[in-house]
Write a protein that binds this DNA or RNA. Structure first.
Length: 406
DNA sequence: CGTCCACAGGAATGACGGGCGG
DNA sequence: CCGCCCGTCATTCCTGTGGACG
């Protein structure tokens, strides 16, 4: 082991311990819930007044919360619930709050497992039927005589994958419960979602609706400034750098999470470079780094066929001005499969894979009609080529195909 | 103004591995 | 250990459709 490497490692460790710019970088992480949520006072007050009846033992209305990503929906909800919970302890009321992110737990079964955990019931990951799991959960909840407030975050994922049956059952759960009650807070960033909801669910879930508008650049800057004050050392970051982060994020529909990420990663880059200040150039580097990280993370965990489809897209978009279609992709994908001697999947499946790639944001696919020449998707890469190549080359099967056209 | 392309995308079904209850 | 049920990937069969072409 060369001492140069050891020196380098040593330097990295020391730098991390004795940060050049940060006091507390965790303040900039998305999971951090600040003590104050500026520009969301109205929503906090409204959500608070909706949930307040639970302190008197009655079931609060179900709530539907809309707002684009990074508009503070989750933060506000968690914040209000936290306060509500401590108030309930003070008053001696049994309120169970449960937060489920249905992007991670996007099946009926897993949601029930999560809800059950909140009332202290451990259910097996698998092995029992959904109906049985639900029954057990209700039994335990009812025996506690409490009010449960269930937050279903990013509820569109749940509905897309598993339908709205669970919502229906939860909203009607009072029929099956005698001592306890369940109130639901549904959070979504998909405004069209409600349309394809069972009307019965729609009316009961949407008893109250709460809208979170995006932050504008000024508000974002304010938020960033407040956080930066706690996160960074005095003088480590200039107003102009914060303004830039705010402006870049405001361009992306006022996403506070992105803005904070940008600030944090810019700080980390500054630190790596041994700089004592976060500079404009660090922000631009951060912008790129975030994109690369996200893409390679997504790509490296994809199944083989998805990678092959992506490779097909990569090759095709290189020639024909960055665009291709489903048919072309499928033909090319099949030839790639035969080259490495594996069986190809059907076109139907590739169609789904394309949708998946589109959803993750790796590609952009728009369905268009070419009239007499049919209806298809126009596909283009949504991330830089070299990022895709780099991520794909990590796969042993795919990398054989990659060498040669690199 | 109807036809018909080239797919989109829904529904039903199955194979398979993981993991639990009994 | 078996049987059951889960989630995931995949297939088969299918109906739906925007708009250029004739």
């Amino acid at each position: 082991m060369s001492s140069a490497i050891n020196d380098l490692l040593d330097k990295i460790f020391v730098n991390t311990l004795k940060s050049t710019v940060f006091i507390d970088r965790d303040v900039l992480r998305p999971e951090y819930i600040p003590d104050e949520l500026p520009h969301r006072e109205e929503q906090i007050a409204k959500l608070g007044s909706i949930l307040a009846p639970s302190l008197k033992g009655s079931k609060p209305s179900n709530v539907f919360i809309y707002g684009l990503t990074g508009t503070g929906k989750t933060a506000v909800t968690k914040y209000v619930l936290k306060r509500l919970h401590s108030k309930s302890l003070e008053l001696g009321v049994d309120i169970v709050t449960c937060y489920v992110n249905t992007r991670q737990d996007d099946t009926t079964y897993r949601v029930i497992v999560k809800l059950a955990e909140c009332v202290g019931l451990r259910l097996p990951f698998t092995g029992i039927s959904t109906a049985e799991a639900y029954r057990r959960f209700l039994k335990v909840l009812d025996s506690r005589s409490s009010i449960m407030i269930a937050v279903l975050d990013e509820i569109d994922f749940l509905i897309k994958r598993s339908g709205d049956e669970i919502l229906y059952r939860l909203t009607r759960s009072s029929d099956e419960l005698t001592n306890s009650k369940i109130a639901i807070i549904g959070i979504t960033n998909d405004l069209k979602l409600v349309e394809d909801l069972d009307p019965r669910v729609r009316s009961s879930l949407g008893e109250v609706e709460l809208v979170f508008p995006p932050y504008n650049a000024v508000q974002l800057e304010d938020i960033l400034t407040r956080r930066a004050k706690i996160a960074f050392k005095p003088g480590a970051i200039d107003k102009s750098v914060i303004s830039l982060c705010a402006a870049l994020a405001a361009r992306e529909h006022g996403d506070a999470r992105r803005a904070l990420d940008l600030l944090r990663v810019a700080g980390e880059i500054a630190e790596r470079e041994g700089s004592e200040k976060v500079l404009i150039e660090h922000v631009y580097k951060a912008l790129r780094e975030i994109e690369v990280d996200r893409a390679s993370e997504v790509i490296s965990t994809m199944p083989l066929h998805s990678k092959l489809v992506l490779l097909a897209i990569l090759n095709l978009t290189k020639t024909s001005n960055g665009k291709t279609t489903t048919g072309e992709v499928y033909t090319h994908y099949k030839s790639l499969c035969s080259k490495i001697g594996i069986e190809s999947v059907t076109q139907r499946r590739v169609s789904d894979i394309l949708s998946e790639l589109d959803m993750t944001g790796i590609i952009t696919a728009r369905v268009i009609s070419r009239g007499r020449y049919g209806k298809t998707r126009v596909i283009s890469l949504a991330v830089p080529e070299d990022v895709v190549v780099k991520a794909l080359s990590e796969d042993p099967y795919v990398s054989q195909l990659l060498s040669g056209n690199r």
